[in-house]
Each structure stands twice: as C-alpha cells, then as structure tokens.
Design a protein around this nucleic acid. Structure first.
Length: 227
DNA sequence: AAACGGCGCAACCGCAAATCT
DNA sequence: TAGATTTGCGGTTGCGCCGTT
C-alpha cells in the first residue's frame, strides 16, 4: 500500500494565511515550479505539496484572470462541455487565465442550473423535456441558443439537430452520432493496432496545460466534425 | 435584529496517469 | 520491466457571505 502524500499531523490544513501565500509566491518566483513534494519544506511551509500546488495553480499564479465569466466564456464552456464532458482541465485550457477548479465551480453553480431551468439536461446537452417549436426556443437568452444552433447548422446529414441544436455528450459512450461545435481544437487521431475497436483521440489544449490525456471512443460511434 | 437557507468559492480527498528508479 | 513515487484531475465538502423571512 502506498503511503499518503504527506503526514497529516504537523501539517496546516484549511484556508491559507497571507504569510503562507507570500512564502509560496517568493519561493516559486525564486526557484520556479519545482518538485511539489519537497517544495513545502524548502519554502518553510507546513503544508503538503499537493496543497501548495493547488494553492498556486488556483489562486496565486500571476496570469490568473479572476472575476466574473463573460458571456463568450460561458458560451465556450457550454460548447466545450458538450464536446469533452467533465474534462475541466481541458476546458480550462481553452480559457486563458481560468483554472479547472474555477470552470468546474462556475459550471456547477451557474451554468448547470441555468441549463436545467431551461429544460436542458446538463449532462448530455439534450432537452430533458421536449419543447416543440422553433418560435419558442427554450432559452430566454436567445443569443446563446442561436449560437449553438448556428454551430450545428453545418452538420452532415447523419446528425440529428432539434430546435435547440442538440449536442450529444461525447463522453457518454452512447452509440450515436455526435454533432460537435466548431472549436478549432488541436485533435489528432490514431487507431491502436492492439485494440482495433477503440479509437484514441489526443486532445491537446492550446493554452498551457502540460498534459494531454487520451479520450477513448468506441469505434462504432460516429464523430461529426465541422469545417 | 436574529435565524435560516442558498450560493459561491477555496480546499481536500481519492484515484489514475505519468514519470522515475 | 516492474514497482515506487510524483503529479494532475475530477468529485466532493466545508465555510463564509448574503439575501430573505
């Protein structure tokens, strides 16, 4: 069994003090984002490395934007979530100055509720109750729904697009066509020979995220991409 | 003015992926 | 190549703030 990342005894937990923040900032300014495991001791902090990393990434980093999300950012989050599901770090990677935690919180506290109130299932971006007419779109803010609708206009004939501009959750694993918004993502695709039934899609966020994770799709699913 | 409830944000936890030895 | 260690991610929780009753 692997030991925990740090001894919890003798470690501070909970909210960070100004002094702790300053110590962390000073240390990283001087040495850069080095080994998080050893950083706390070297910086004179009674925190575990994980906690330091989180504090730096989510709060102290100088390039963070903070403040309210703009309408365009919100729109982009919705589109990216439709494409990527709950892959917050990838979504945040497309939003300069935003962190995965921030995006996740914003989704859960604002967007999710908003979509639900408009009768849209936030998990798969489908209408959870059918709203029949185009004349009465489900969103009170028409610009958003029409944005998504516009993005689905160019879909090939395989995609089913309803009055909302329905988008399936790519991560849901459902055997259906996917109508994806035009996101200009850097996508490369390969089919590993060892597992011909699975296609691997490498998602490389353009904005600064170091890691690129692989999404696995059943090959029976059809991806419909926009030009 | 006090109590209560909802909301938003920061931080923690557990797990998996990536990297190192 | 396998096991150990570190890093990163997503889900969840806890707490403070603010509006309502």
């Amino acid at each position: 069994m692997r030991k925990p990342c740090c001894d919890t005894k003798d470690m501070n937990k909970g909210a960070w003090s100004k002094q702790e923040d300053q110590k962390l900032i000073d240390y990283i300014k001087k040495h850069g984002e080095v080994c998080w495991r050893t950083l706390p001791q070297a910086a004179g902090l009674l925190r575990c490395g994980k906690s330091c990393r989180l504090r730096w990434i989510n709060y102290l980093r100088p390039d963070l934007k903070r403040g309210n999300f703009g309408e365009d950012e919100e729109d982009l989050i919705i589109k990216l979530h439709a494409l990527l599901g709950n892959r917050w770090s990838l979504i945040a990677g497309r939003l300069p100055g935003r962190t995965d935690n921030e995006v996740k919180n914003y989704w859960n506290s604002h967007i999710r509720r908003k979509l639900i109130s408009k009768g849209i299932d936030p998990n798969n971006h489908r209408l959870s109750k059918k709203i029949p007419t185009l004349q009465n779109p489900p969103m009170s803010d028409n610009s958003k729904s029409s944005d998504l609708k516009d993005n689905c206009k160019n879909v090939t004939s395989k995609a089913n697009v309803d009055s909302y501009g329905e988008i399936s959750d790519a991560a849901s694993g459902e055997d259906e066509s996917y109508a994806l918004p035009d996101l200009n993502l850097d996508l490369t695709m390969s089919v590993p020979s060892a597992s011909p039934s699975i296609a691997e899609i490498n998602l490389k966020p353009i904005h600064e995220s170091k890691s690129s994770r692989k999404l696995h799709f059943a090959s029976s699913s059809t991806l419909v991409l926009f030009k």
